[in-house]
């Protein structure tokens, strides 16, 4: 495997050519915030917190560090004014779901985010998909999945599978940056004990 040289925040970094910008930055001790990223899982590029400015072959664009492959002579800037603004707004959007999330709180100060900027939401879920993807990709059980699209998208356990698999696993619980997952699970458990059948969301 070859090695490429790139510049991240003015620092020369050598990285293996199969690495992502995020991995290269981490190897050089440069911190890029992430939420939906997990090293055991495929890049997901959904939370967008890891967005960085990437300059390669004369083209400058914003891209997610968790998915962007490193290239020779690439120049990466991880904390431009635009990026800070993007991260701040993204955090504020997520805080409307989970104002007390510790992972979000840890970033609030650094980015000057205001947790009350947007109206509060009923659901804690910030749709990082860690539970869904971990269960499918690592545990191969798919006991929890997404349903619906757009603003109605949410996580949903499949009761038949959850009742068999989850009690002894619960590995996804600690991945969840908010309390959404546990709430959804407890809700499912309550449902299963009420009735053996599951109801799918009927509304689109």
């Amino acid at each position: 495997m070859g090695v490429v040289t790139l510049t991240i925040d003015n620092k020369e970094v050598k990285a293996k050519e199969e690495m992502t910008v995020l991995e290269a930055a981490q190897s050089a001790g440069i911190d890029i915030p992430t939420l939906c990223h997990h090293e055991k899982l495929e890049p997901y590029t959904a939370c967008r917190l890891c967005m960085v400015e990437v300059e390669s072959r004369g083209r400058v664009k914003l891209d997610t560090a968790c998915s962007s492959p490193v290239k020779e002579n690439m120049v990466v800037r991880t904390k431009t004014e635009d990026i800070i603004k993007i991260r701040r707004t993204l955090l504020e959007l997520m805080l409307s779901h989970a104002p007390d999330s510790r992972e979000l709180q840890a970033l609030v100060k650094e980015y000057g985010a205001d947790k009350d900027r947007f109206e509060k939401e009923a659901s804690f879920c910030i749709h990082c998909g860690l539970c869904v993807r971990y269960c499918a990709e690592v545990k191969k059980k798919s006991a929890v999945g997404f349903i619906n699209s757009g603003v109605r998208r949410e996580i949903s356990f499949v009761p038949e599978i959850a009742s068999k698999e989850c009690w002894n696993c619960k590995e996804c619980f600690e991945l969840c940056p908010t309390e959404a997952l546990q709430t959804a699970y407890l809700f499912t458990v309550a449902q299963i004990s009420d009735s053996p059948s599951f109801e799918l969301e009927s509304e689109k």
């Binding site: 590029t45 959904a46 939370c47 967008r48 993007i86 707004t89 993204l90 959007l93 997520m94 409307s96 779901h97 947007f118 109206e119 939401e121 910030i126 749709h127 998909g129 997404f146 619906n148 699209s149 757009g150 603003v151 109605r152 998208r153 689109k204």
Partner: peptide, 18 residues
């Protein structure tokens, strides 16, 4: 769009929501 977006990424989904 709030209905038709796939709902995967934060700026689109939650941006549209707000």
């Amino acid at each position: 769009l709030a209905n038709e977006s796939c709902g995967k990424c934060t700026p689109c989904r939650d941006g549209l929501r707000h």
